[in-house]
Design a protein around this nucleic acid. Structure first.
Lengths: 130, 130
DNA sequence: ATCTCTGCAAATGTTTTGCATCAGC
DNA sequence: GCTGATGCAAAACATTTGCAGAGAT
């Protein structure tokens, strides 16, 4: 039912060029390099559409805005540095959370967010890039 | 430096009566039962203030709004039912995530969100309270 | 009396929606 | 040509801020 428009294609390509999770504003800026006339409303509409069709996955970071990443990426988590405020991928996953859920509950997914200090911020007392 | 106002007290009491995480709107509605004239701006200001003073903790659920809960609650996680859209407390915690973070990183905290179907929704094919 | 806090309303920022037009199929 | 998609602007929300007056100490 959905048509292939240049706009949607441009947005898709933005996500093929990065593995970082992106917000609407990021996507708009990146996609406008290929398609200057692109509007923010179209970005919102397509992010939602691409998520529903399964191409994108919503990422919930403890921030304000909703971020998205490619759905075909390996299952992973994030480490948030409270000092430099950056997010790092954590490929490892402890898995096996089934024993945590009560009898009768059906566990289907999980999200894990680790936080603290990254190596740079942990070693340097001075570095600060916030 | 901070004064004890009726407004702040009313907001504090809202959190003493529940263990569920609450959003600004929830807090406003609940506190207005005791203090009808209370304004939403005051709620926002006090939620932030109470978080800074350590009485409240921000909870990051995969939604839009920022929720808060009492800081003195035991460390716990949540289970989100995608069918009835409710959040359940999970008291257990797998702990020991240190081995997941790269060399040199300092792990200080973590958040875990489990999701799937709760017992009610998992057993009944019909129940739906969205 | 001082100085913080409050309520209101306006400002800001984000996301959604109505609508006329455009473009895929 | 039909029908979904786009861009714009307005609307709908959520959150923050300026300010004058009220209240706590």
């Amino acid at each position: 039912m959905s048509k292939n428009t240049r706009q949607r294609e441009a947005i898709r390509e933005v996500f093929e060029r990065t593995t970082r999770p992106l917000g609407p504003k990021d996507v708009l800026a990146a996609a406008q390099r290929a398609l200057p006339g692109l509007g923010i409303a179209t970005v919102y509409r397509n992010l939602k559409l691409l998520e529903e069709e399964g191409s994108l996955k919503a990422v919930h970071l403890p921030g304000d805005v909703q971020l998205y990443e490619r759905a075909d990426q390996m299952h992973h988590h994030f480490f948030h540095c409270r000092r430099c405020n950056r997010y790092f991928d954590i490929q490892a996953c402890p898995g096996d959370f089934d024993r945590l859920v009560p009898q009768g509950y059906k566990l289907e997914a999980h999200e894990l967010m680790l936080s603290g200090l990254c190596d740079t911020c942990a070693s340097s007392q001075s570095a600060k890039k916030d």
